[in-house]
Design a protein around this nucleic acid. Structure first.
Length: 329
RNA sequence: GGCGUAGUAGCCAAGAUAGCAAGGCAAAGCUCUGCAAAAGCUUUAUGCGGCGGUGCAAAUCCGCCCUACGCCU
């Protein structure tokens, strides 16, 4: 396919608290687009305040075309359809592969409607799976095998993988149990771990990155955290638990939910030997604040690798629009 | 004023019988083939409140001083 013939897709990415959602809606309104969320936690129903999920429009604000989108499972926000939000229960595990499949489907649908797909989110791995067209092996998590392997030591895991696939052992992080287990899982199912394939994307993609200074980030993170608590984030977690979400699973969900689980359980994070991390509300807030800051740094680091991303300050809307104009013409 | 206890990196904290200062958190830098808000890696005290003393050798023993907390008058 000629490059010029490829359908166009805009990606809005960046660390947390940089205003991606707002920008995505602005772009959608201006360029007749629909948004696909690239957020690994907003796919879960009920994780609303803690994930900073956008709020759905009230019903009477719908019109014909919105009704059409709704049929396809869209989440309406400011009259713009958003996909891949609230698609699964938080007690289920939703992975990159699930996300990628759904996203590809949605992109086709949006394009067939002659609209612009806008992927918006901060989960770098998800975005990369689309942008770089990573082909991931079709091996679903094997719970039983994982349970068995989790008890093994690093050395044992290395030995097992060496037997199954010595080639993969050379390239994995041998200190990382999660990676080792996954490699063993794939090798058990397929005989070996296939070499990573990347497929040229069938789309023309413009990646807009949103960036703030460290100080701005820190302030935003803190203010947003306080406002989430005021909005009832703690109550939300309590309700989730009442409705059957285990604390164990809540901890797996990370950040807000992870420390909320510790806080509600009156337990301490395993690694925090100094204790007093989440015992009272003040410590809980402080701990969470630094965790979110660290998370934003990891995101920044992840995105740094992709040199195709064009970075902007969220305040610089004019420049961003100029870039999109250039891309869409 | 007297007695007691404590004072180790930004925070928490281990350092019987003196022998070259654990660990955790934070910070900074990184890695990435299905939980990615995950998991992992690297770096981070020539110095142990201060000043002296005794030892081949002191965070560890002795003296004085400073600080904090507790008790007593």
């Amino acid at each position: 396919m000629e490059n010029a013939m490829k359908p166009k897709v805009v990606v809005v990415l960046g660390p947390t608290a940089t205003g991606k959602s707002d920008l995505a809606v602005k772009i959608a309104k201006k360029y007749n687009g629909e948004v696909i969320s690239a957020d690994s936690r907003q796919v879960y129903r009920g994780l609303d305040i803690g994930t900073g999920k956008i709020t759905p429009d009230t019903k009477n604000s719908s019109n014909f075309s919105i009704g059409q989108a709704k049929k396809e499972g869209a989440f309406m926000h400011k009259k713009i359809p958003h996909y891949l939000i609230d698609v699964v229960s938080p007690s289920k595990v939703f992975t990159v592969v699930d996300w990628k499949k759904e996203t590809e489907k949605k992109m086709l649908e949006i394009i067939s409607r002659r609209k612009l797909p806008i992927i918006c989110g901060g989960t770098g791995f998800y975005i990369q799976s689309i942008v770089d067209g990573i082909v991931l092996p079709e091996v679903p998590p094997n719970k039983r095998l994982r349970k068995k392997l989790e008890k093994k030591s690093l050395i044992e895991l290395n030995t097992i993988l060496k037997k199954l696939d010595p080639e993969r052992l050379k390239t994995v992080d041998r200190n990382n149990p999660v990676r080792l287990i996954r490699a063993i899982e794939i090798a058990t199912a397929l005989g070996n771990v296939p070499k990573l394939k990347k497929q040229k994307s069938p789309y023309q993609i413009l990646q807009i990155g949103l960036k703030l200074s460290d100080n701005e980030m820190k302030t935003k993170i803190y203010e947003r955290l306080i406002s989430r608590i005021k909005k009832g984030m703690i109550q939300e977690a309590e309700n989730l638990h009442k409705n059957g979400l285990s604390f164990k699973r809540m901890r797996e969900l990370g950040l807000e939910y992870r420390y909320l689980a510790y806080f509600l359980e009156k337990k301490q994070p395993l690694k925090a030997s100094s204790g007093r991390m989440t015992k009272n509300k003040k410590d809980f807030i402080k701990k969470l604040e630094t965790e979110i800051w660290r998370y934003s740094k990891r995101q920044r680091l992840w995105f740094k690798r992709d040199k195709k991303i064009k970075w902007f300050s969220p305040k610089n809307l004019k420049e961003i629009e100029k870039e999109i104009h250039k891309f869409l013409d």
